[in-house]
Lab assay of single mutants.
Amino acid sequence: NKFNKELQWATWEILNLPNLNEEQVKAFIDSLKDDPSQSANLLAEAKKLNDAQA
């Protein structure tokens, strides 16, 4: 289903952001699991944090 694909993509993207630490990655992944419908928003937040920590 649509959410599953978005969830998988967002998870992969977050796991490959170079500037997030392990705790941050885990928090984002946990949030994705809690509410897959928010995957696009969570991914945007993760990318923002990644850029801020570059």
Rank of each mutant, 00 (worst) to 15 (best):
L49E: 03
L15S: 08
E6N: 05
D34S: 13
L49I: 08
A40Y: 14
E13I: 14
L7M: 09
Q24R: 02
A54Y: 08
N41D: 08
A54G: 12
A27P: 02
E23P: 06
N41E: 09
I14W: 01
D34W: 12
L20R: 00
A52R: 13
W9G: 03
P18W: 08
I29S: 03
D35P: 01
K33W: 15
Q8H: 04
N16P: 00
N50G: 02
A46E: 00
E6W: 15
E22S: 12
L42M: 06
Q53Y: 07
L43I: 11
A54R: 05
N50Y: 01
N16L: 06
S31N: 08
E6R: 04
K47G: 04
T11R: 06
S31V: 07
N50K: 01
S37H: 06
E6Y: 14
S39V: 15
N21M: 11
K33R: 10
L42G: 01
L7K: 02
T11P: 02
L7T: 06
N19Q: 05
L17T: 00
S39Q: 05
N1R: 03
A54T: 10
K48Q: 08
W12A: 06
N21G: 08
Q24T: 03
N1L: 03
N41P: 06
K47P: 00
S37D: 05
L17Q: 04
L43Q: 02
N1M: 03
E23M: 12
E6I: 14
W9M: 12
K33E: 10
S37I: 04
A10R: 03
L43M: 06
P36R: 02
L20K: 00
F28D: 00
K2H: 15
L49Q: 06
D30S: 14
N19I: 01
N50M: 01
A52G: 06
L32V: 05
A40N: 08
D34H: 11
L42S: 02
E13K: 14
K5H: 09
A52Y: 11
L17S: 02
Q53W: 06
E13H: 11
Q8I: 12
A27N: 09
N19P: 00
N21E: 07
L7V: 11
N4P: 07
K5A: 10
F28E: 00
L42R: 06
K26P: 00
N19V: 01
K2M: 14
A27R: 13
E22Q: 11
N50W: 01
S37N: 07
T11A: 05
L15H: 08
A46H: 00
F28W: 03
L49H: 03
E22I: 11
Q53A: 06
V25H: 05
A44W: 14
N4L: 12
N16T: 09
D34A: 13
P36W: 06
A27F: 14
K26M: 12
E22W: 12
L7Q: 06
L43T: 04
A10K: 03
A44R: 11
I29L: 11
D51Q: 13
F3D: 14
K26Q: 09
L15G: 05
L49G: 01
Q8D: 04
K33P: 02
E45G: 05
T11L: 14
K47I: 08
L49M: 08
D35N: 09
K26F: 09
F3A: 14
D34Q: 13
N50E: 01
N19R: 04
Q53P: 03
K5E: 15
Q53M: 08
Q53L: 09
N21K: 11
K47M: 10
W12G: 04
A44F: 11
L20D: 00
K5T: 09
E13N: 08
A10F: 15
L20P: 00
P36S: 04
D51L: 13
